[in-house]
Design a protein around this nucleic acid. Sequence first.
DNA 1: ACGTTGACCTATA
DNA 2: GTATAGGCCAACG
Length: 108
Amino acid sequence: MSDFYQNVFEVVRQIPAGKVTSYGAIARYLGSAGSSRMVGWAMNLSHHQEVFVPAHRVVNRNGLLTGKIHFGSPDEMQELLENEGIAVENDCVIHFKELFWDPIKELL
DNA sequence: ACGTTGACCTATA
DNA sequence: GTATAGGCCAACG
């Protein structure tokens, strides 16, 4: 496994419960700014990872749950988010700005 | 081997 | 403020 994906999984794993982040933030944190799509591929591989990766805490810049369809069930992601106290409506994270967790600022 | 697609983001009009 | 274009790199057909 490339270090890139491993790093992505590690960052995603460090996301606190009840918080969310965006692909671009992770990509920028890894230094591969602009390659946010690779983060998405990394999430795709997260299912194959043995360790649990809270991919449901990762959403796009708009706070839209674009990758919910890649879960076991499209509703599973929303269920997980609501289970952590994150309000989700119309596939959008409510108070996304407040729940946003930037690895660059927080994790640094 | 080439072309298209994809869990995206930034920039310009 | 919305709309369109370009870029990025890897996987799939």
